[in-house]
Nucleic acid binder design. Sequence first.
DNA 1: CACGCATGAGGGATACGACC
DNA 2: GGTCGTATCCCTCATGCGTG
Length: 310
Amino acid sequence: MPYKSDTRPLTSIVSYPERGEGGDNRYRGNCSPRLIEDLLGFFRPGEICDYMCGSGTTKAAADKLGVGSHLYDLHSGFDIMNCEIPERPEFIFWHPPYWDIVTFSDVMYKASDVQKNYGYDPRQYDLSRIPDWESFVDKMNYAMMKQFSALEKGGRMAVLMGDIKKRGVLYSMLSEIVKPGSLENIIIKAQHNCFSDQIQYSGKFIPILHEYVMIVRKDSPLLVPIIMAKKAEVDIRDMPGATWRDVVAAVLEQCSEPVTLTFLYEKIEPHKKAQANKWWKEKIRQTLQINPTYFFHDGRGMWSLNRSAA
DNA sequence: CACGCATGAGGGATACGACC
DNA sequence: GGTCGTATCCCTCATGCGTG
């Protein structure tokens, strides 16, 4: 009786406290097969492909539901960055590494075995061995687009990924992963019994207890819309939406001592805010006057920021 | 629900006395 | 005389409210 969608309708939040049968729970970083069962139960693809199948969680889920599967991994001769994808998949499940949180090659399995059986050292192609975040994201996005390109029209990719907090910095895979096609769903998946549960955190950050399943669909084969993160910097003095109060406060904020009006003029004059207003000097003076809660008047022509103001 | 009207924030423009 | 401090007026836009 395949596709028993039983009492677990798929929703935008999922939680699998007991991991269920399948896969190897000693293989760190793998997920509950129940997630994949639920995805298969909902989308009902004829087959499922997994190009980073790891310990075989996808196979366990597919077998249980009687769905055909095509499974590959770096540990058994398939390198996503360089090998051709053999199928035109209808459904891809992808559980990429969480950067370098868990190293796979030569840790979860022996590099020498792969060298012996397939003739390459898996460590050189292993995404979990990329030390810097930028190149990791680049490679991830390449692998994402490569898999998406292989999809048949109407096909889907479900990507299970998590954000990472390292030394106070958030590295968000969900933000930075490229999103080709139609972004159909983002599912929050609760994490249970993960390694970080054991760590006593020193305080100032919110422990991450969830990951995401992003589902994208390929609607048109040739022209594919994509959403991708782009880092940029804007100057508040050139920004539509920033008020005069914002601009003046921002300039004063980087000064420890009271500054002259001339200084404020110099800092603001070259920017769009000033260039858009013929009376910009007057506006600056007026702004300082009408916001006594934010701006201190330290004698004629001298101003500073009231840092205690809310 | 469309409308007319009031209100208030933000911004532009101008004027003018005080001060250096 | 030029800069600074202050007041005033007008415009636009968003929001809220009562009325028909």
